[in-house]
Computed example of a mutant assay.
Amino acid sequence: MNLKITSHHVEITPAMRSHLEDKLARVLSHFDQVQTVSAILAINNEKEKELRNHAEITIHLKGKDIFAEAHHADMYHAMDLVVDKLDRQIIKHKEKVQNHHHQTIKNT
């Protein structure tokens, strides 16, 4: 897995990087055909404090891209939320791929 982390108005600390890598390892254990992962972490100048920290992740799979984003007052919670969203999307995609290959058309 190639992980590319981009930041906007925030410095990526080693703790943030390791936290994101640990969370993504759980997601990637469900589906092993991941080519690259792109993450963007930003602090926006929103008036509502709950929406200031913004995390978005794009996972590039073979033939499909999966995208999720989340906002929270804390950057670590925003990363957790976006990884949870990606986890649900990866599981759904995996079920679709597996069910598609096992369907047969029977003519009677």
Rank of each mutant, 00 (worst) to 15 (best):
L86M: 04
A39M: 02
D87P: 05
F31C: 07
F67L: 08
Q89L: 08
Y76C: 03
Q89Y: 09
S7L: 09
T104S: 14
I12N: 03
H8T: 13
F67Q: 08
A25W: 08
L41I: 08
E48T: 15
V97L: 14
V10I: 10
A70R: 02
K64G: 07
S38N: 14
K4V: 00
N45E: 15
N44M: 14
A25F: 11
S7A: 14
L20E: 01
E95R: 12
M16I: 00
H19I: 01
M79R: 03
H71D: 11
E11I: 05
M1C: 07
H102K: 12
K23C: 06
H54L: 11
G63E: 13
I5C: 07
A73G: 03
E50K: 07
H72Q: 00
F67E: 13
T6E: 12
I40D: 10
D32W: 03
D87F: 02
H100C: 09
R26Y: 08
S38Q: 12
Q35V: 12
V97H: 05
N99D: 14
E69L: 06
K85F: 04
L41R: 05
A42T: 12
E21R: 00
L20Q: 01
K4N: 15
D80W: 04
K23P: 04
E48P: 09
K64Q: 13
L86V: 06
I57C: 02
L51W: 07
T58D: 09
S18T: 05
E48V: 15
H60C: 11
Q98W: 12
H72T: 00
M16C: 01
E21S: 09
A55R: 07
E46D: 15
R52M: 14
I12E: 03
M1R: 01
N53R: 01
A39V: 04
K92H: 15
A73R: 00
R26L: 15
D22A: 00
L20A: 01
K23N: 13
E11P: 03
K85D: 05
G63K: 13
A73M: 01
R17Y: 00
E48R: 11
L24I: 01
M79A: 11
N45W: 06
D84V: 06
L3Y: 06
V82N: 08
T36Q: 13
H72C: 06
K4T: 02
L28H: 08
Q35G: 09
K94N: 02
D80N: 15
K4M: 08
I43H: 02
K85C: 03
A78V: 02
R26M: 13
N53E: 03
Y76W: 07
Q35Y: 07
V97P: 00
D80E: 15
I105T: 08
Y76V: 01
H100L: 12
L20N: 02
V10Y: 04
R88N: 05
N107I: 10
A39I: 02
L86Q: 08
H30S: 04
A42M: 13
I66R: 10
T58Q: 11
S38L: 12
A68Y: 01
I91V: 04
H19N: 07
M75N: 10
L24S: 08
H60Y: 12
Q89S: 14
R52W: 06
E95V: 09
H9V: 01
I12H: 05
F67K: 06
K62M: 13
I105W: 05
D74R: 01
L20H: 01
K106V: 13
L24W: 03
N53S: 00
A55L: 10
V34Q: 06
I90K: 07
V82S: 07
N99S: 00
V34S: 11
P14E: 00
H102S: 13
I90N: 11
